[in-house]
Design a protein around this nucleic acid. Structure first.
Lengths: 163, 163
DNA sequence: GGAGTGATACTCGGATATCTGGTGTCCGAGTTTTCGCGG
DNA sequence: CCGCGAAAACTCGGACACCAGATATCCGAGTATCACTCC
């Protein structure tokens, strides 16, 4: 099991966008530069977040990406699922229906118990992420972050921030 | 994010092995036939479970795989991690250390808060799986399973069970 | 008839191909800005 | 000096290569069984 690297990128970008003034955003080029990652590939993930209604994109000069909603209304689950897609990690292929002990197709109205257990675990995973908003995460982060990092970020922002 | 198909196979195999009498096992060929999957590939996953100390393997005729411990002492997490490996799904690449706001290497003694949140979710996921043993799962399963399926399985077992 | 021994058949084990999905990149569509020109 | 217009530059958006890891398979190592032979 492995989460896409894009999840990390997307989360960091959202954390950077969250504290900006209302309506402000950043172009992909700036987001990529700030995190030291490929711009082309980052756009791919940001685009996914736009489709998931987590970000909003604006074209043209002075364009960029910004949060689609207030940071207090975006959960980590929204971001993770926006990039990874909502599909569950465990996917039942119904192997119980094959082999010598298999019954007719009508016999399997109850879901596979193994799948039920695995999905229960995933629900617990999702619950933790759904319980934490971007606003909370940013608050925790700024409290523990090195002041010099905040200072450097604030010094860098004005040249690239949009609107 | 996606779990390997082998996790499903491994869990089903363990569920089939758990109710067998003490010390009894099944050869990979039988396990593969019962679930209608490739034997060669199934062995690869069973081998991983042997390395993880979930199963024990015996070579030669009358050989096969059996649980390494009582079913009440094997958790679903043991099986899942035995096949997937214990690595976390979210892997922090420390992109916070790159880019214009980066500080010196010594400034990052505290773990990345984003990673902390993601790992907290994974711990919740693991806790659910750790909290359910094979014995519990088998009990739930037999209670809800179609009696005809159990009957068919019991009719098929004697010809392939070992020791 | 019984014990020993060799061959055999069956099992697991690791090394080896194939293929899907994540990773990475490029070029095109759209929009705002900006510069130049004319009034 | 002001307004209009066209070109340009910058942005996002989707289509196209590349690579790691999962998927799938084969052949070799090891062992209990079995049959045969000899005592």
């Amino acid at each position: 099991m492995r989460l896409s690297e894009g999840v990390e990128w997307g989360l960091h970008c959202c954390v950077l966008l969250a504290p900006l003034p209302d309506g402000a955003g950043l172009p992909a080029k700036a987001l990529a530069e700030f995190h030291g990652v490929s711009e082309s590939y980052l756009v791919k993930h940001l685009k996914a977040l736009v489709r998931a209604n987590v970000l909003t994109s604006i074209s043209g000069p002075k364009g960029g990406f910004r949060l689609a909603r207030p940071a207090s209304q975006i959960t980590l689950l929204d971001v993770v699922q926006g990039i990874e897609g909502g599909q569950p990690a465990f996917r039942c292929t119904e192997i119980r229906r094959r082999g010598p002990a298999a019954l007719g197709p009508g016999a399997y109205r109850l879901p596979c118990m193994i799948t039920a257990s695995m999905l229960e675990a995933e629900r617990a995973w999702a619950a933790v992420l759904r319980n934490k908003t971007l606003a909370q995460l940013v608050e925790e982060l700024t409290a523990k972050l090195d002041p010099r990092a905040i200072e450097k970020t604030l010094a860098w922002l004005p040249a690239v921030v949009r609107i």
